[in-house]
């Protein structure tokens, strides 16, 4: 009886965790080389709440495997500033991918 209760509780917990995670959709802007390779100037990317910049680039590589070769790091700007890989993304963030720059 007690064991049954515990297993039910565990099951309930697992279900809550599985369905309790929410996703956010970010509109990721693309420039120059990335814009041309993707064929559009922005892409919607769904990530889990609490996702980091690294999670986002992993998801983008999954969706667009030809965007950047594996040895090239995809540089991300969040709200018009360079963002490290461990930065946590929030809904409504202005997220842009920055291909290697070549001004001057």
């Amino acid at each position: 009886m007690a064991r049954q209760f515990v297993s039910r509780a565990i099951l309930l917990y697992v279900m809550t965790t599985a369905t309790g995670t929410t996703h956010m959709e970010l509109n990721v802007r693309l420039f120059a080389l990335y814009r041309e390779r993707a064929g559009r100037s922005s892409i919607p990317v769904a990530v889990q709440d609490g996702a980091t910049v690294a999670d986002l680039t992993a998801e983008i590589r999954r969706q667009l495997p030809n965007l950047a070769p594996p040895e090239v790091k995809i540089v991300v700007a969040v709200n018009a500033d360079y963002a490290d890989e461990d930065i946590v993304l929030r809904p409504g963030d202005d997220v842009c991918l920055i291909p290697p720059v070549s001004g001057g």
Binding site: L33, P69, E71, P100, V101, S102
Partner: peptide, 16 residues
Amino acid sequence: WVACEDHEFPPADQPA
């Protein structure tokens, strides 16, 4: 697209 020399992209992939 010109890239900084130390970030030069390898030749474009298949679709490109």
